[in-house]
């Protein structure tokens, strides 16, 4: 029951995507959908939409070569198959509602816009869908005939984030909530609580996993800490909405040249599996790039530096008394003989994408509006799955759970200080070691702070 077909694809990696394979309709039509914790609707391209047609220039064909191996008792065989696609849309999978006997349009406009201004537009409808060995009936999703994306999306964020609560508001129709994928899993009896755990796995792994309704202790190390979601991102006032939490400070941990604090400014951030990139406040993104002696490239929208600068280097973020650290090599794309840092500067929307999530085990609790975090573990230990029926098993509130900085709409940044980085001479390196730093504050006042444990972090404020 754990065996799945897989598509083998050349690893010219620049922007990896994490996708699930879904069967839609009767008979089933297959589509790969980006698993997106930053949005809440499932949307799939209609086969003949204008954008997809525009990609078919009559010259290129999109070919998938794959090898199938079947093994039975005393019999083994291997065959190679080829399939040709007309457009990248058909390569990733589209949906033709006219050929599904169980599909029903529900006459509701569908229009999803994302942080990069890409979009899907079309109509909501319902059909039967299957992933792995589970099937959901009368499942609501958008069928897009107007898009700029060749691949569909499975949004699994809060119901409030559904486009029925956004677009309908501006079109003078009544906002409403429908059962999106995590909700449908609960309401159709597959899970006990609307919560899931995300494990993307390490950089070179071909598969990660998502566990709806449960936690797998074998996939993380250390303590699983819980944070509250920021309510400010679940109102109609905010430009962006979703499962945001507060990041308290950012540091670079380097085994050779020492650890350094980049920023002690709080900012709201979302763990977004729908993008490989991360967006951080401009001052922080710049400080990280400069810390590797990088030079900003406007063409590539990021800092470029010597790849050797990021060997054994971690990006560590304090979420309120505990840190999660991600390998900087997850964030870089080889570019000629240098490396491009895929951390974008932003003034309004801050996210940690797949590069950070690879080293993070995240439990999203959509009913209690909490996010639990731990350092991901890649030891391939035996599964240790615990059902989530009330609180998240094994999780404890973060030390700063109740005192976390509260985001105010229109004030996108916190009250701490950016730090003019000076290196420390600590040579000991551990991704779990607390940060020691000597800093010069940006206003010229010299100060220093240190912490021997995450609960003793000294924080400077500038109001």
């Amino acid at each position: 029951s754990d065996a799945f077909n897989s598509t083998l694809i050349n690893m010219f990696a620049s922007a990896d995507r994490y996708v699930v394979e879904m069967e839609i309709g009767t008979p089933p039509q297959t589509a790969y959908l980006v698993l997106d914790t930053g949005s809440s609707d499932m949307c799939v391209n209609e086969a003949n939409n204008t954008y997809c047609e525009s990609l078919a220039d009559g010259n290129d064909v999109w070919t998938s070569n794959y090898e199938l191996t079947a093994t039975a008792s005393e019999i083994s065989s291997t065959a190679t198959s080829h399939k040709t696609y007309n457009t990248p849309c058909s390569y990733w999978g589209t949906f033709n509602p006219n050929t599904s006997s169980t599909f029903k349009f529900n006459e509701t406009v569908f229009n999803a816009t994302y942080g990069d201004n890409s979009y899907f537009a079309g109509t909501y409808g319902t059909d039967v869908v299957s992933l792995g060995n589970i099937t959901l009936s009368n499942f609501t999703f958008g069928v897009s005939d107007d898009t700029v994306n060749s691949m569909g999306v499975l949004g699994i964020s809060l119901p409030f984030v559904e486009e029925t609560n956004i677009f309908q508001l501006t079109s003078n129709t009544t906002p409403f909530v429908y059962d999106n994928f995590p909700m449908a899993l609960k309401n159709q009896g597959k899970i006990k609580k609307i919560a899931y755990s995300l494990f993307l796995n390490e950089l070179n792994a071909r598969f990660g996993s998502i566990l709806f309704g449960a936690v797998d202790k074998s996939k993380y190390s250390g303590q699983l800490y819980t944070l509250p979601m920021l309510q400010a991102f679940n109102t109609f006032d905010s430009e962006f909405s979703g499962m945001f939490v507060t990041a308290q400070s950012v540091a670079i941990l380097d085994s050779k040249s020492g650890n350094k604090t980049v920023s002690e400014v709080q900012f709201p951030v979302v763990f977004d599996s729908g993008t490989s990139y991360s967006s951080l406040p401009t001052e922080i993104a710049d400080a990280i790039g400069r810390s590797f002696d990088g030079k900003y490239s406007s063409d590539n929208r990021g800092y470029i530096f010597d790849c050797s600068k990021v060997n054994n280097t971690l990006l560590s973020i304090d979420f309120g008394g505990f840190n999660i650290s991600a390998n900087i090599s997850n964030f870089v794309t080889p570019l000629h003989e240098h490396c491009l840092l895929n951390i974008m500067a932003s003034d309004s929307m801050f996210s940690l994408g797949d590069a950070f999530l690879m080293d993070t085990y995240v439990v999203y609790d959509l009913e209690n509006h909490e996010v639990s975090l731990a350092q991901a573990s890649f030891n391939n230990e035996e599964e240790d799955i615990k059902i989530i029926s009330d609180s998240v098993p094994g999780a404890t509130p973060a030390p700063g759970y109740s005192s976390t900085w509260v985001y105010t709409p229109g004030s996108p940044i916190g009250t701490g200080d950016f730090v003019n980085v000076s290196w420390t001479s600590y040579s000991e390196f551990s991704q779990y070691k607390s940060i020691y730093a000597t800093e010069s504050l940006s206003d010229g006042v010299s100060s220093s702070s240190s912490s021997s444990s995450s609960s003793e972090t000294a924080t400077k404020k500038k109001n």
Partner: peptide
Amino acid sequence: NSYVKLPIQKLANIPNINLEDVSGISKR
């Protein structure tokens, strides 16, 4: 079993297949 485990495939970008990096966050 009261839980659903699904594999997530990691797809690498393929030259000319336009694997857009959609910022997955909903924008109002």
